[in-house]
Design a protein around this nucleic acid. Structure first.
Length: 293
DNA sequence: AGCTCTTCCTGAAAGC
DNA sequence: TGCTTTCAGGAAGAGC
């Protein structure tokens, strides 16, 4: 599933082949993941792709103002979220079309920017240039840029489980299930711990490992599960470094205990029961106090 | 505030 | 073996 490293990998690939090229036509297949399908054909032809950026898990194609006829003065951004199974890449027209390819942006040099998405949990929308700031403000901090102080401040005192907070895109942009679990394993923090109960050293550790895990995953061009491939069609390598995610029943790389799987924040959560001790329930705390007398 | 459940969708895996 | 059921999950919304 595309999270920050996978989206960054796609974006870096697109950045080498898209900027400077002009969209000349749009062809649509299924459109239920597109906010306003007809707007694509009406507003995009004639616009040049000026930049490709990642905003959390979103891909932003910054487009030039259009030709005179339609909303000419306005800069527009094409925003794409890959959801679970989305893929965006450039192909030649004669290249085979992958199943579930639903959007084709024809470029002036004959190539096509194609969007493929088996489950269509992705999203595609147009955002007017002057609305982009507002769009970005709905999202939280970029985890690769956040300072230690900001990190603690966002989490301290929150009574939600740390995993739920890591996944909340309004707090951090870009972290998903895999990298949340990998980071919590690295930091030796149980996913169900309440943020309010974490020590400041744990916040420090967590921020550091999130950064390390994400950077390393970007170097490895993402994790390839659920068929993820980059913009060129190549799989990533980071799944070989997974220490928790998808390893239920296998030995912990640190201590050998069997990795367990529980549901936290509605998501499968993999952790080491020995390295990542479970939070003590209120009842357990009460019993401990009573026993001590 | 924060949790669980539901919805969207398809293919893989489990169940019979 | 082969058909049927279940499950997974990013995000958003409902309801508690």
């Amino acid at each position: 599933m595309p999270e920050l490293p996978e989206v960054e990998t796609i974006v870096r690939g697109l950045r080498t082949v898209l900027p400077g090229h002009t969209i000349v036509a749009v062809r649509l297949g299924k459109t239920d993941f597109i906010e306003d399908p007809s707007a694509l054909g009406e507003l995009l032809p004639g616009r040049r792709i000026e930049a490709v950026e990642r905003i959390g898990k979103f891909i932003r194609l910054a487009l030039s103002p259009g030709p005179a006829a339609k909303a000419p003065e306005r800069q527009i951004d094409l925003i794409v979220h890959l959801g679970m199974t989305g893929w965006l890449g450039v192909r030649r027209p004669e290249d085979p079309v992958a199943p579930h390819t639903h959007t084709f942006f024809e470029l002036e040099d004959g190539r096509e920017l194609r969007y493929t998405d088996i489950r269509r949990f992705g999203q595609m929308l147009l955002v007017a240039g002057d609305q982009m700031a507002a769009f970005g403000e709905r999202l939280g901090k970029e985890p690769l840029e956040i300072s230690a102080g900001e990190f603690s401040q966002l989490l301290a005192g929150r009574h939600a489980r740390i995993k739920a907070l890591l996944l909340d895109q309004r707090i951090f942009r870009g972290i998903g299930n895999i990298y949340a679990d990998e980071s919590l394993w690295q930091a030796r923090i149980h996913p169900a711990r309440l943020a309010a109960n974490l020590k400041s050293a744990e916040f420090g550790r967590l921020r550091k490992v999130i950064r390390r895990v994400l950077l390393r995953a970007i170097e490895d061009r993402g994790s390839s599960i659920s068929n993820f491939v980059d913009a060129e069609g190549q799989p990533g390598e980071y799944q070989q470094r997974h220490r928790a995610y998808g390893r239920e029943g296998k030995p912990c790389f640190r201590c050998g205990a069997k990795i367990r799987r529980v549901t936290v924040a509605g998501r499968s959560s993999f952790f080491c029961p020995r390295c990542q001790p479970a939070p003590r329930s209120k009842r357990a705390v009460r019993n401990a106090l009573r026993t001590r007398g």
